[in-house]
């Protein structure tokens, strides 16, 4: 039998500081990991509800991955798992999907190669379908960005200027990326087709209005 003196249990006492930042002191996570809107960083029903409802059972992802989708690099100095790698995957698959989507449409253009009209590539609509502005607006329209863990230099300067558009778009890329990681490329393409192009307003409607507005200015 081991005597109690052999069992060594190390216990660390760390002081967690509350209130304004003091250099060198570790801040209390309960106070730090909270969004501007007051949402606590945790896998709670309220935090994940919007994206879980959007994904439905067919495209479901784990709660920890869902929380990672909602977390931006700017939150908590990047100490929590954030969505950079997920969005790297998502942005690439979205760009590829929409490039294929636009060239596969039936065309009378005699320069089309094997029925694929490549003249549409490089046009504003083809570029902006997977663009940050369209996806940011899509996230806002579908209330997907209502709970996001991020930090702005100034929350009060509007959707685009505060960085909310960029962070929302990155969250959307991450959402598509998470579906790709979990379910594979084929299912992710179905997801884009069903949930992004099939939504009301669809990503196509949003992009058209974005491009039209830019052409008017």
């Amino acid at each position: 039998m081991l005597s109690s003196s052999v069992c060594k249990l190390s216990v660390r006492n760390i002081y967690l500081h509350k209130g304004p930042r003091v250099a060198g002191l570790k801040r209390d996570p309960q106070e730090v990991f909270v969004t501007q809107g007051g949402a606590k960083y945790e896998q709670s029903e309220t935090n994940l509800k919007h994206i879980k409802d959007f994904l439905t059972e067919k495209y479901s992802i784990d709660d920890d991955l869902a929380l990672q989708v909602l977390t931006h690099k700017s939150f908590g100095n990047g100490i929590k798992p954030y969505n950079e790698k997920l969005s790297a995957m998502g942005s690439k698959i979205l760009n590829l999907y929409f490039a294929k989507f636009v060239v596969e449409k039936p065309s009378q253009n005699e320069l089309a190669i094997n029925g694929k009209n490549l003249d549409v590539l490089g046009t504003p609509i083809a570029k902006e379908l997977a663009g940050r502005l369209s996806l940011g607006i899509f996230a806002r329209t579908n209330n997907l960005n209502s709970t996001m863990f991020w930090k702005s230099y100034n929350y009060g300067v509007g959707f685009e200027t505060s960085g909310e558009m960029k962070v929302s778009a990155q969250m959307m890329y991450a959402l598509v990326g998470a579906v790709t990681f979990v379910h594979g490329k084929k299912v992710a393409e179905q997801f884009i087709s069903e949930k992004l192009l099939g939504a009301s307003p669809s990503i196509e409607d949003i992009t058209s209005s974005v491009v039209e507005k830019a052409q008017q200015n």
């Binding site: 009378q108 253009n109 005699e110 320069l111 009209n117 003249d119 046009t123 058209s208 491009v211 039209e212």
Partner: peptide, 16 residues
């Protein structure tokens, strides 16, 4: 129209 992707044509190119 903007979303009629098949109708896009670059007129500086005439043939392949």
């Amino acid at each position: 129209s903007l979303t009629d992707y098949g109708s896009y044509k670059n007129n500086i190119f005439t043939h392949r």
